[in-house]
């Protein structure tokens, strides 16, 4: 059983929902990322999605685009991101880490080399935004052979046939994108999400995490009620941007943001 599967099973057993924060590695500075990851865990994160910065993040809105730019100013490379995970693992061997990014940096390293390095660093899952299962023939077996979970996206526009096909290629969890748009944009329609997620649950046994549009305890609870976990990204990255000058304040601000979400999710369990 992968670390991701283990965590999600345990949560399910307790009737709890996963809190999955996203931050971009190297933002605001590569030296801070590992610290911030530990902060997220202390504040209640069950799984961390760590963004690999890319020069052309086509699926992201301005908030995460700017995070990528801040990280790239300091030359944050995929190799360095893997180094951060390795350092994180020195103190935390329990929290799953999912690398989320775009295909080109991974291809530039070489897929096999990347898969090896990811396992060695202690990465648990890979979510490549611009890699649909149709194009993953070569890379998917490399991940499977190394017990790395391949996490794919589902969207409001995904047809039933594709939900089934994508789920078959996925392990760990599937990531449901709650609205049509880029990260950080738009408003989540909880009723619509609820009906789509319950439909996805009919088509796959995998846990469903929902991301895009979750920005506070209320939206986290509303989405947590209908899914297996919530993914929180832009609101955290925006907090990083606003507190980048002061690392201690930044950590406090991230904690202050995540804590209420954790509590709201856990209040659903009773």
């Amino acid at each position: 059983m992968s670390r991701i599967e283990g965590v999600l099973k345990a949560l399910k057993g307790q009737g709890r929902k996963a809190l999955i924060p996203y931050i971009t590695a190297g933002d605001p500075h590569p030296d801070l990322t590992v610290d911030l990851m530990h902060t997220l865990v202390s504040a209640g994160a069950d799984i961390i999605e760590l963004g690999v910065p890319f020069s052309d993040p086509m699926a992201d809105g301005p908030v995460i685009q700017q995070a990528c730019e801040r990280a790239l100013v300091h030359g944050t490379s995929l190799r360095q991101v893997l180094g951060m995970v390795k350092t994180f693992r020195e103190k935390d061997n329990a929290t799953p880490v999912v690398l989320m990014g775009y295909l080109n940096p991974m291809e530039a390293m070489g897929q096999e080399k990347f898969a090896d390095a990811a396992v060695e660093a202690g990465v648990d899952g890979i979510l490549t935004v611009d890699l649909p299962p149709e194009e993953a023939d070569e890379v998917a077996p490399l991940f499977t052979a190394r017990n790395l979970d391949a996490i794919f996206l589902l969207a409001p526009t995904t047809t039933d046939d594709r939900i089934r096909a994508i789920s078959e290629h996925s392990s760990g969890y599937v990531y449901y994108v709650s609205f049509k748009g880029v990260t950080g944009a738009g408003k989540i329609d909880v009723d619509e999400v609820a009906s789509k997620v319950s439909h996805i649950h009919e088509l796959t046994a995998l846990p469903v995490g929902v991301g895009f549009g979750i920005r506070d305890a209320a939206t986290a609870a509303a989405v947590g009620r209908v899914s297996d976990g919530v993914i929180v990204g832009s609101v955290l990255v925006d907090t990083i941007a606003r507190n980048q000058a002061d690392p201690d304040q930044l950590k406090r601000a991230l904690s202050d943001l995540l804590h209420p979400m954790r509590e709201a999710l856990d209040s659903l369990a009773s």
């Binding site: 996206l153 969207a155 526009t157 994508i166």
Partner: peptide
């Protein structure tokens, strides 16, 4: 069928656009 010219081409987009 998948839009490939030899090793090139394809459909490397996020899921929301795939159906379109």
């Amino acid at each position: 069928a998948r839009g490939h010219f030899g090793a090139y081409g394809g459909r490397f987009v996020s899921e929301t656009l795939f159906d379109s």
